[in-house]
Amino acid sequence: MKVAFIYQAKEPPVINGIKKPMKPGGYSDGCADMAYCLKNGGVDVITPVDDPDVYKDTDWCFPDTHEGIQLAIDKGADTLWINTVLYKGHPIDDFSGIYVVGHRTKDVEMYDDKFSTNTLLLQNELPAVTDYLVTADTVYNGEYPCVLKPIRGRGSQGVVKCDTPEEFIKARDEAFASGRYGDTMMAEEYLGGTEVTLTVFPDGTSLPFIERFDQKNGIAPYNGDVPVVKNSRVIEDTPQLTALRKSCELAVWLLGLKAVVRIDCRADKNGNFKMFDFNPKPNLTGASRPHRQDLNSLTLMAAEAAEMDYFGLLTKMLETRYLLD
């Protein structure tokens, strides 16, 4: 197996008026972390340069353009780890006869829409939060506090807890004035109880739960501002969490996904857990390089609790590869 990592090189297209903001660097940091770890573990990793600099992310991965993907293949890669934001018509759709680690483009376009996904989960009697579409003149008439958030968001960026209608209108107006998220957002009930996240593999198995704490104004801060190792910890299953685990695993099976997802859940005021963020593009950074020692991802924290190191997690994920046809 010869593996090449693919990162996001440009903004994804607007889909039905909805924008997904691009992460600076396009996940090249996580690509480099993974590539460095696998290479040190003896996996044949294909890189754009012959002697990649441990401190230079893009020495370890290829851009997700047609030319970038073709270059990875030309240099010998038979497996592409697609660590980027996907959508129907993405350049990876131009290729066949090569193995990939990652979701199908059609699945990401569908399930990265948090409103549609949560609605689908509810329709299948799974515990998910109820969402409402928000446009520039929408007034949320549900119970407060509520949460205003992007439909195709990234982490907690753009997510705002609103305690009053006045706060909602202010947050709504600022979000639409920024133009960052498109012409529609979503609102949902605020879940103020214990917050956990679960990584689920496409075979329906999952890692230990991670609890999030030290939320800022009720929302877990973006990991680019506060490393998750500072506000997250492993939590043992309780009967309630075991039931939630089964629901999350069932959700992944129901959607027929091809790659790892991370599902964020939180308890409501009555203590009932609900899924609120189904994330087909979980962060996979890890402390493999010397300058990245506090940047383990939530998924890696969970893997380590299952006695799996970074290399073990990545090789398990490599086993999920499938052939593009």
Rank of each mutant, 00 (worst) to 15 (best):
Thr242Pro: 04
Phe213Asn: 05
Ala267Gly: 10
Asp264His: 08
Glu236Leu: 14
Glu304Tyr: 05
Leu254Glu: 09
Pro290Asp: 07
Lys274Asn: 14
Phe276Thr: 14
Gly218Phe: 03
Glu211Phe: 08
Asn217Lys: 10
Thr299Trp: 00
Leu244Thr: 13
Met275Gly: 12
Met301Leu: 08
Gln240Tyr: 01
Cys265Gln: 09
Asp294Met: 01
Glu249Asn: 12
Ala303Ile: 00
Asn279Cys: 08
Thr299Asp: 00
Phe273Glu: 07
Leu255Ile: 13
Glu236Ala: 15
Pro239Asn: 06
Glu307Asn: 15
Val229Ser: 05
Glu307Ile: 02
Asn272Gln: 15
Lys274Ala: 14
Glu211Val: 10
His291Leu: 03
Phe278Lys: 06
Phe273Ile: 09
Ala220Met: 06
Ala303Thr: 00
Asp277Ile: 10
Asp214Gln: 10
Gly256Cys: 05
Lys216Arg: 13
His291Ala: 11
Lys281Met: 15
Pro282Gln: 01
Pro221Gln: 01
Val234Thr: 11
Asn279Lys: 02
Phe273Gln: 09
Pro280Gly: 05
Met275Asn: 11
Leu255Trp: 04
Pro239Ala: 04
Arg245Tyr: 09
Lys274Glu: 13
Val261Ile: 07
Asp214Ser: 08
Asp309Gly: 01
Asp237Val: 10
Ala251Cys: 09
Leu255Lys: 03
Asn231Met: 08
Arg245Leu: 07
Gly286Val: 02
Gly218Trp: 05
Ala303Lys: 00
Thr299Cys: 00
Gln215Gly: 13
Gln215Asn: 13
Arg292Ser: 15
Pro239Phe: 06
Arg212Thr: 13
Val252Pro: 07
Arg233Gly: 07
Ala302Gly: 06
Cys248Trp: 03
Tyr222Cys: 04
Glu307Arg: 03
Asp268Ala: 08
Ser247Gly: 11
Lys274Gly: 09
Ala287Arg: 01
Ala243Pro: 06
Leu298Val: 13
Asp264Cys: 03
Asp237Lys: 02
Val234Trp: 01
Gly256Lys: 03
Ala306Gln: 04
Asn270Ser: 14
Ser297Gly: 06
Asp214Met: 03
Arg262Thr: 12
Ala303Tyr: 00
Thr238Leu: 01
Pro227Ala: 03
His291Asn: 14
Asp268Trp: 06
Met308Ala: 02
Asp277Arg: 01
Met308Arg: 00
Ser288Val: 06
Thr238Gly: 10
Val229Met: 01
Asn296Gln: 09
Asp268Ile: 10
Val226Thr: 11
Ala220Glu: 11
Leu244Gly: 11
Arg292Thr: 10
Pro227Cys: 02
Ser232Leu: 05
Glu211Thr: 13
Ala303Gln: 00
Glu304Ser: 04
Leu257Met: 14
Pro282Ala: 03
Ala243Ile: 11
Lys258Trp: 11
Phe276Lys: 09
Ile219Gly: 14
Leu254Asp: 10
Ala243Phe: 02
Val261Gln: 05
Pro239Glu: 04
Arg292His: 14
Lys274Val: 14
Val226Ser: 05
Tyr222Trp: 13
Val261Ala: 06
Asn231His: 12
Asp294Val: 10
Met275Tyr: 08
Ala251Arg: 03
Lys216Phe: 05
Thr242Leu: 03
Leu295Ile: 10
Glu304His: 09
Asp214Leu: 09
Arg266Leu: 05
Leu298Thr: 14
